[in-house]
Write a protein that binds this DNA or RNA. Structure first.
Lengths: 113, 113
DNA sequence: TTGACATATATCGATCATCTATATATATTT
DNA sequence: AAATATATATAGATGATCGATATATGTCAA
């Protein structure tokens, strides 16, 4: 099933922060990991991710460092800052509020008042 | 709690169709009903709703008719078409897929493989 | 009865998140 | 040697929603 891309709007940052909350990762890895954990429901595009990571770094939500892979290739890893961790907590709360509001609308039927 | 407006992106149409699935409504009423059912988490803006209703009508998802209120004021009511009902079913399925994917990412922790 | 506020619909331009397309470079496989 | 996968980056396009504004009617209080 392919989901409407606009549904993802607004939750992408939260998902990225969550990945980094679990462990440091490099960009390409985040794309693969998101696809894997979501059973390929999500396929975040590189053109979305890299600018987003730069913005998060400018905002102090994440830090980056370069590191060689086994094959001597350089990868740019990101790690979550304290500020990013706090942002994640806020966004998870917003997410809960949001889905419960949507579900309330979906469950509400005709009013037999 | 105020949720990020971008979280709503993509689910607005589904919510409108759901309201009309329950009963015919006019635009202003939809805005109030969405706020009420979501405990004021949602405050859909008129500038979003009215153009959206026009688009849905052009697409054959809803039909409209004018009707006098008790005070003789004219209101524009909308009703769901068969096509709109089918679209709602699809969007509800997409919604389920989407939230379960997000929740899977949020629950997934470090991989101790 | 006038003025303020709520109800009701409409449109325009701005904003913002995401995508597509493109570019570049290295590593791996055929 | 060529094709494909890995890895990062940026520019411009798209699309959903909002803020601002306009217009008109109904209601309530001073």
């Amino acid at each position: 099933m392919t989901i409407n891309k606009s549904l993802l709007t607004g939750s992408t940052t939260m998902l990225i922060l969550k990945l980094l909350d679990d462990q440091d990762m490099y960009g390409y890895q985040m794309i693969e990991e998101l696809a894997k954990r979501s059973d390929h429901t999500f396929s975040l595009k590189a053109g979305t991710l890299y600018p987003l990571l730069h913005t998060l770094e400018d905002q102090g939500m994440v830090r980056s460092y370069e590191r060689n892979a086994d094959n001597a290739r350089v990868r740019k890893y990101y790690s979550l800052t304290k500020k990013g961790d706090e942002m994640l907590a806020e966004q998870k709360q917003e997410w809960k509020t949001y889905i419960s509001a949507v579900n309330q609308v979906l469950q509400g039927g005709v009013n037999f008042a």
